[in-house]
């Protein structure tokens, strides 16, 4: 694989970004922001589009439905379906942090810190729910419509169409009880295009002066639950895989943010466990997405000098805010 090349200057949103996603037609890029706003830009000319407002806390996740509607969710539990920049519906889907949204042909699934997995109709009516009593970090539908959910303790539950648990894939390396803190979690879940492989990503935490972590990506055989291959970062300060996307041809794009290192943007060519491409140019990335044409990637990172103890001052003497520069990359 030829290494991807950065294209142009990054878009710099006015605040930090949790998620970025391309629309299915490839004409816009949306960003879930910590100020409760969904910001969008036209692709490729990066012209700002109407901001979508109405969320509380952080906008935590974004998913486009195949028809181009946007589903956004926030850390206070609200799930919103936008059609043509208008709220089609908005529901209180969870009590608190809604962590992930997945879309199947006829259903929408959500999970959150409240321990619930819920399924909704395309109109936002509740179909099923199940309580698992743990912080649920990630969920995804297989190409056949089977829902899997990842939690804080490194467990991946395979659910039936009524959200009953069919089986559990234990991935204990994703969790550590550090002193009294449960750390880690299956932060990202994805399927290979053929639906045979599950990709789970997050970190393997380690106790230090404070919690540190090796980024971790594990490929599991969906049928047997066996580990096919895995990649672990070399250092315990490389942090957490925050986002993982799958190309139509099966390649993977992942981003990490450090803890306390600087984080990376990585590309994989499964089943090779060594990354085919690594960039450290964009520090502390939190999201990545692949354009529907498969030729462009966007990554959201963090500005330089984002950390520091005590009263750090900005250029004008003000208390600074951080942001998440969004960079396009061309890839073959």
């Amino acid at each position: 694989m030829k290494p991807p090349k950065e294209r142009g200057k990054p878009i710099v949103p006015p605040c930090q970004v949790i998620r970025i996603r391309f629309s299915p037609d490839g004409k816009e890029l949306a960003a879930a922001c910590v100020d409760g706003v969904v910001r969008r830009w036209s692709v490729p000319d990066a012209k700002p589009l109407t901001e979508l407002k109405g969320h509380d806390g952080w906008v935590t996740t974004l998913s486009y439905s195949p028809n181009g509607d946007l589903l956004s969710a926030d850390s206070w539990g609200k799930l919103v379906r936008w059609s043509n920049e208008k709220v089609r519906w908005s529901i209180a889907a969870h009590d608190g942090w809604l962590r992930a949204v997945a879309i199947a042909k006829d259903r929408i699934a959500t999970c959150g810190r409240d321990g619930y997995v819920r399924e909704w109709t395309a109109d936002g009516k509740k179909l099923h729910e199940a309580q698992f009593g743990v912080d649920l970090y990630s969920l995804v539908y297989s190409p056949d419509g089977v829902l899997i959910v990842g939690d804080l303790f490194g467990q991946i539950r395979v659910l039936d169409s009524h959200l009953k648990m069919l089986r559990k894939l234990e991935q204990k390396e994703f969790h550590l009880l550090d002193r009294i803190q449960d750390v880690g979690g299956v932060r990202c879940l994805a399927f290979s295009p053929d639906g045979k492989t599950i990709y789970a990503a997050g970190c393997q935490p380690k106790t230090g002066g404070f919690v540190q972590a090796f980024p971790l990506l594990v490929a599991l055989d969906f049928a047997t639950g066996k580990t096919l291959w895995s990649w672990k970062g070399a250092n315990d300060n490389e942090g957490i895989v925050h986002d993982l996307r799958v190309f139509a041809d099966g390649r993977l794009a992942a981003v990490t943010s450090g803890q306390p290192g600087q984080g990376k943007f990585l590309l994989f060519e499964p089943p090779t466990a060594t990354p085919a491409f690594v960039s450290t140019k964009m520090p502390n990335c939190h999201s990545v997405d692949i354009h529907p044409d498969g030729k462009q990637i966007a990554t959201s990172a963090t500005n330089a000098n984002s950390s520091g103890n005590g009263r750090v001052k900005g250029k004008a003497g003000e208390y600074p805010e951080n942001s998440s520069p969004i960079q396009y990359w061309d890839i073959e």
């Binding site: 910590v34 803890q259 502390n284 005590g310 208390y319 951080n322």
Partner: peptide, 13 residues
């Protein structure tokens, strides 16, 4: 710190 750093952490304040 009020400011949220690139590691989604907060520093000493």
């Amino acid at each position: 710190t009020p400011r949220i750093n690139g590691h989604l952490g907060r520093d000493h304040w």
